[in-house]
Design a protein around this nucleic acid. Structure first.
Lengths: 296, 296
DNA sequence: ACTACTTGGTAAAACGTTTATCCATTCGCC
DNA sequence: GGCGAATGGATAAACGTTTTACCAAGTAGT
């Protein structure tokens, strides 16, 4: 019944440091980031750290503002998912002095900080190969923002795989909002007719595609096959569970966290560049196209 | 190019206050809470506040610890979704001095703080009436934790509605984890046979039910009708979009935020008790049961 | 028993900001 | 032109913790 708790501000003012790490993500509504933050928070708590969460809403200006706010707390470290390929100036400035781990969206190489990413090229390639093997030749890629590094990498992986079979995938840009994306997808479908397979590049575009497909009365996988991205409960809560590329979220979180802890612990090693595998989960949303293309 | 940013700790030490509010939720993986936090964060930013997020993981001990950590920052206010009906001691202690708004899970009446909840009884009643009207008499309620106040209220609403038609719903407790819940639901289905309609009490139990149903090859709404809870993109991204009780998340967030701002602004009014409506979204997952019971 | 060393506990300084006080300067006004 | 008031800049004190310094008392070793 002591009821005493120390004043963190006073403590941090005196010592200059404080057991807090900032976490900056584009959005908490996107389950990918929510899960990431959740995992990080759990590990932080286990290590006696407090997490300061900030979201950029995929807006560079807000990102910069949030970053400043975060930095004002003088955290012992920072884990960030930048919202564009460009590293915010404030972040770049801190790289020299503050332990920082960049995750998922890394636009440039040779950054002087640890990075944890997914092998997006391989992920795209595997997804494409899967639908290719099933005989699909009319493939539509549902991208969020094609310019974003991870998306671009996934698309390149798809294109590389398709190239080997002499097929050229179409690419639709759906944005980061489900409803808006569904509308764009529906428009695309109406305009150009539907392909035999869709590969979605994020969980949001997967949702958008599914919505558009459902609204247009197009059956999955009867009319079009679908490979999703990310792996969530709702994907398997359906009559035909979705095949999808599963991003190893807890691995990502763990890796990022241990990198950060090592840096905070004083490690001055070379920056580590982790690339994690995102394996394809084969389920039932991909099957042979209805009109099998005649043999060559 | 000033590059200066004030030391928040020093500032807060001097003034005793700081533009920060703590937000405590059970989980960020549950989209309901993630969306809530996201909305709150947005409003906080607009008002120049920083949000400190903490999750309790539905564990009372962790909740208490997180609460202490939060309080250590001497925030100007607190928005909390308690993880049980019991208010943590630390919270109760602060109620006298710190602006606090309690959301969603309010176990007791007459708390000396503002509260924002959903009219759970009405929500349950409407959901039940809907399936009742369609002719269903064998109803299964998929609850998470029946003892939790909002869940209990929803169940009472359902029971009250059913009572008027002289039907007694079955109740299954599925917990707060999707996979686990799916297993329990599957067991329940196998043991007792399936009802003609399921009413799920949270988005997690909706997911669990759907998963169990899909795995058992039971068609929605062909074999069993389903009313879900909460309203997310994945619910409409299906061939038969889900009927569901839609919780007004942004309303909840807004109300909670403005209550808190008023208190921080110095309001000493009577505690406000907001009860928001959660309307039923009728879509296509409820239809008449296959074997219509003969007229009375 | 005296010295050297350890231990414990108290006192004081420092962190960076904010607020209040004070003094000097300027301005307006009679 | 002189006086009161207003303005502005500089100075100091305070917030609560941590760290260092210091002193006293106690312990062990010679």
């Amino acid at each position: 019944m002591l009821g005493y708790q120390k004043n963190i501000a006073a403590s941090q003012l005196r010592t200059g440091r404080v057991k807090v790490v900032g976490v900056l993500v584009p959005s908490l509504v996107d389950t990918f980031f929510a899960a990431l933050v959740s995992d990080l928070e759990e590990m932080a708590e286990a290590d006696g750290y407090q997490v300061l969460v900030a979201t950029s809403g995929d807006d560079a200006a807000r990102e910069a503002a949030q970053l400043d706010a975060l930095l004002g707390w003088k955290p012992s470290g920072l884990i960030a998912v930048p919202c564009t390929n460009a590293i915010p100036e404030a972040l770049r400035r801190e790289m020299a002095t503050l332990p920082i781990v960049l995750v998922d969206r890394i636009g440039e190489e040779d950054l002087p900080v640890d990075t944890v990413v997914v092998d997006n090229h391989a992920a795209g390639r595997e997804a494409a190969r899967h639908v290719l093997e099933m005989g699909h030749r009319e493939i539509l890629v549902a991208a969020s923002v094609a310019g974003l590094r991870p998306i671009a990498d996934r698309i390149r992986g798809i294109i590389d795989a398709c190239h080997a079979e002499a097929v050229t995938p179409r690419i639709a840009e759906l944005g980061t909002d489900v409803e808006d994306g569904a509308a764009r997808m529906a428009a695309c479908l109406a305009r150009e007719g539907h392909p035999t397979a869709v590969i979605a590049m994020t969980n949001v575009t997967t949702l958008a595609t599914l919505t558009a497909l459902a609204q247009s009365g197009i059956d999955v996988p009867g009319d079009v096959s679908l490979v999703g991205f990310d792996d969530y409960a709702w994907m398997t809560a359906r009559k035909t569970p979705l095949s999808a590329v599963r991003q190893p979220i807890s691995n990502i979180a763990q890796s990022a966290w241990s990198c950060l802890m090592a840096r905070i612990g004083g490690s001055r090693d070379e920056p580590v560049r982790l690339t994690l595998d995102a394996p394809l989960q084969r389920r039932n949303s991909v099957c042979a196209p209805r009109t099998v293309p005649g043999a060559a």
